[in-house]
Write a protein that binds this DNA or RNA. Sequence first.
DNA 1: TGCCAGTTGACACTGAGTGCCAACCTGGCA
DNA 2: TGCCAGGTTGGCACTCAGTGTCAACTGGCA
Lengths: 195, 195
Amino acid sequence: MSYAGDVGLWEQTRRTVRDDIALAAMDLVVAQGFEATTMDEIAAKAGVSRRSLFRYFGTKEDVVLHGLASTGEFIRAALATRPLTEAPWEALLAVARSMESTPGWDTARERAIGRVCVETPALRARRAEKHAGWIELIAPELAVRPAAAPVGQAAAEAIIAAGLACLDVATDRWVAAEGTDLATLLEEAVAAVRA
Amino acid sequence: MSYAGDVGLWEQTRRTVRDDIALAAMDLVVAQGFEATTMDEIAAKAGVSRRSLFRYFGTKEDVVLHGLASTGEFIRAALATRPLTEAPWEALLAVARSMESTPGWDTARERAIGRVCVETPALRARRAEKHAGWIELIAPELAVRPAAAPVGQAAAEAIIAAGLACLDVATDRWVAAEGTDLATLLEEAVAAVRA
DNA sequence: TGCCAGTTGACACTGAGTGCCAACCTGGCA
DNA sequence: TGCCAGGTTGGCACTCAGTGTCAACTGGCA
């Protein structure tokens, strides 16, 4: 297991280039929309060849959703730090609340991504696909809690899937209405589901 | 509001052609996989031009997921027949149980679609997209129940989103393991979420 | 200086999806 | 019967996402 920093100069450079590309792409997409932005434009703006762009990101959706790449692992890691006695839903909500105050969290950027997702079916779909990947990643971490009465793998998957569904509903509302914060909307959605 | 039959000869013919295309596509996809099947092959097998195929179905995913086209409306209509005193989750589960015994339900076909979805990210994504569309369709119907204590639109959306997430988890397990029926797996998932 | 491994950019190709247009029904009307 | 109007079909050309291939480049190392 390694920390983010000790991966050599090559990997470090690659990450910087990835971030630059994602940033350039976001500018273009916010300005002209996702469909109207071509990979050629993104490549040109990022100062990289079209072919290299496709080596950094497999699909156009992935460029815009770059910010979500490490979120699944973040949630899993954050979940591992919660006390084992905590029940699944409480642990998940605690992790969600902690995200907004984590270093690297950028509310404006998240909202921009959310907005683009709302108006672009292809991005919503890809985001859902990423969420599906998180389920398998997080479920084992959730299944062992609470230590006294562990839930099964199937139950853990269902809870996480439902939680992410609540997150999607909350995000839609968060993007649409200025003012309320995301964590509150998420808690309301979860409360409705558990009622 | 009109019944399925009274839509004129043209529309009837179109529907038949659509069904034929979807059937032909399913044969090819089950045999060779989704990615390896081209729209040209589907068009050829269905005896229609490539251009017309794209007029019947906007995307390749839609051809395979044709069976889900009317499911959202089916759920909404079935929900409308449930007693208004029933609580949201109970009404939804009752509708789900009723689906397997509805005319037109084909377990083998549903399982085949589920199997293809499991192994094809693009199809999972498109299916999730369809589910998202159902939420807006069904939420108003759910929000008015139970009549004594109606839930808000936001709460209704959260419940449906969570229910569909449970359905996805249940479907994955249903496809993977022969034997158990889908309704039972769904009930287990919902029970885990509500615990 | 020359070798090695990984990266880059150019080119060509496949396949999804779209706009356009001419040919073709089909039902209504003189 | 013949003609007209609206909608359907199929062919053609096009854009764009995504992939395979290969030659040229780059930094580290003996």
